[in-house]
Write a protein that binds this DNA or RNA. Structure first.
Lengths: 211, 211, 211, 211
DNA sequence: GATGAATGAGAATTCATTCAT
DNA sequence: GATGAATGAATTCTCATTCAT
């Protein structure tokens, strides 16, 4: 029916970092506004009315582009999932020693997370609002990401550059715990910039993995 | 009128690990039920009606013991904050080398978190629901906890047993990120018990801090 | 939970022609108001707001007693179905020749229908709004009624007092067509009273069945 | 501007059984689709969007041909009214004894109704949606039909071939009740075809009218 | 202490219709 | 002739909270 209303209609063609609803300025504005408000107040505490008021359109317009409030949430999820998977693949596929590849990937996810802090706040806080169906889909994508990261650690453990005192799974959760947590404490006007935080956190991971 | 309804009235007197509403079985059942439902469905998605139905009482009873739905949330917060502060103080005050004291504290918070996973899930997910006033209070308690933990790290850094390549603050957030994250992945029927997870996570922290 | 909200809670105890929500005056007033409005304007054209305004209560009160707007419709159905089945059973069980029993039943359903014209208007006009589940239930009750009536005709056909030139099923639908139709043309201030209309319609049926 | 949009503009010229929108295939498809959906789901439960989706056109197209959703309903009414009046006139004007003319007319309206069951379902179910103005118009046409039918009965009563024990008006309503009712029970795959049902129902009417 | 009927504000969503292109 | 984005009013339903009993 409408542009972005159908699940995956023309998804592939629009491409780029903007994802769906590329050209439609109203849809884009709505998504941006919703993202900000969801991050500030939480999904449940943000009413559709607030979103459309802030975006300067009417409810009808929102429902013209998005099938439901939930759909808005999914667009946010989709964007952040696609972005992070892309970046992980890029670093994991690089031609470098495994310790370098892991370090780069670990640091990059921190930078990317900070640069999209609103999206990731929403992602981690509101994941449990997903209906069974879409939940499965998101979990599957999430698992794929997780496994790719774990593979790097296992590779290093096998080749002896990382300790195998700790299960690789747990290490992944350890690191992503700190990434997830960024939304709780990171402030743009704090003493450390994204890159510095990323270096430190990657450093901690690499130190912890020293044999 | 009632015991727990007034903000902090007789707080000090009740003492012990059970916190407020110690003796009242109805209040206790309500709090336990609310905790479970909040953890399962989120605070906003849980209606007062659901809570009282599940607890087998009526709304009047709930409002007799708790001033509002928010109050229920605060009791959960209060319990978990008090509990964790107590345990941290216990380990930090011990008579042992700093690396032992930090390790014990770091491992203990993991065990305690897993043993109260519902409470901590709620804590991290719903903190942003707090009104300005109570938010300040919780943040203050939270900061106190955070600072006590940081002090241990700084002590180790000063005495040279821990590296000072990374700011102590960041290390605290690093560790608490992984603690916070437990609610996302830890399963009671998973391969690792609370103690084992705690050992591994404490291990990772100590390794990361090796000079 | 609430009085009439649960399907059949205390149904049996209330008894009598009033059906559920016997004592609750608010529930009764709501049901009466809704019945009138549904008959006047149709189910879909009547908003919940109109009902509660006309009944002088608030929406919350309506939803306290009835789970949904649909529930209101079902109470109407239930009442009319129960009433008509009772009366049919009464006349069909009587100790009299079959032509007398059929005539009495045929006339009585006309009187009852006219006396509850609002309910029956709603019944016939809005039956198609029923969800699959309740639709089945209503159809089952309807069929039972239909079959009882048909049995009388078949009895007369077997014993030769009625012609068997026409299938009994069709005769039932023929008669109930005219009953159903009453809502379309019968006016309280018209030339014929309920009893007179009933006599004429029963007469037509008996004449049509003469061998 | 468009053909059928203006109330009655060129009505007379189009003539034939197809009524308005004869040639325009889009308008015809829209009307057919709307008829089906209205019959299946009811007028109020069918959205304009559903109609245009099912017809494979856009909303603009619908509003190009029909002034409003109500207009669509009126086209259905118009078609069925015109059709039935034509057929009744045909049989009533025939050169045959009155009992033959009535029987033929009574049977024919059954056949025509079954053959246009969707239209008649809509007609009887949604008549009450008409605005005051159009309601009057439809009622007038309806009355004209009714009176023509009644005249046949009165003619038979005067000449003694029909009983006058029952008012002619009531007999008309009796018969049309069963016609109206067809939409409730008639199934295409049932045991009786349109012609057979028509014969039986006409038979019942004639039997009832025997002196 | 406890009940549960009632409130009233606000939630998401739908939809017939319009209008610039 | 035809599109589809946008409107805005209305709809059903939810829910924390209160209060007479």
């Amino acid at each position: 029916m409408a542009g972005t209303k159908d699940g995956d209609g023309s998804g592939g063609a629009t491409g780029g970092a903007t994802g769906r609803c590329g050209a439609k300025p109203v849809a884009r504005r709505l998504l941006a506004t919703a993202t900000r408000l969801f991050a500030e107040q939480g999904y449940d505490r943000t009413s559709v009315q607030e979103i459309v008021d802030a975006a300067g359109v009417t409810k009808g317009a929102l429902y013209h582009y998005f099938g439901s409030k939930d759909d808005l949430l999914h667009e946010v999820y989709g964007r952040v999932l696609r972005l992070q998977q892309e970046r992980l693949d890029h670093f994991a596929d690089a031609d470098a020693p495994v310790e370098q590849r892991l370090r780069d990937a670990a640091a990059d996810v921190v930078v990317t997370t900070i640069e999209n802090l609103d999206d990731t706040k929403i992602f981690f806080r509101s994941m449990h609002h997903l209906g069974a169906e879409k939940d499965k889909q998101v979990r599957a994508e999430r698992r794929r990401y997780h496994e790719r990261f774990r593979a790097l650690i296992e590779e290093g453990q096998r080749t002896g550059v990382f300790t195998d005192a700790v299960p690789a799974d747990l290490v992944v959760d350890y690191h992503f715990g700190s990434v997830h947590h960024l939304g709780t404490w990171y402030r743009e006007d704090g003493p450390l910039g994204p890159r510095q935080v990323a270096d430190h956190l990657a450093d901690l991971l690499m130190r912890a993995l020293r044999p």
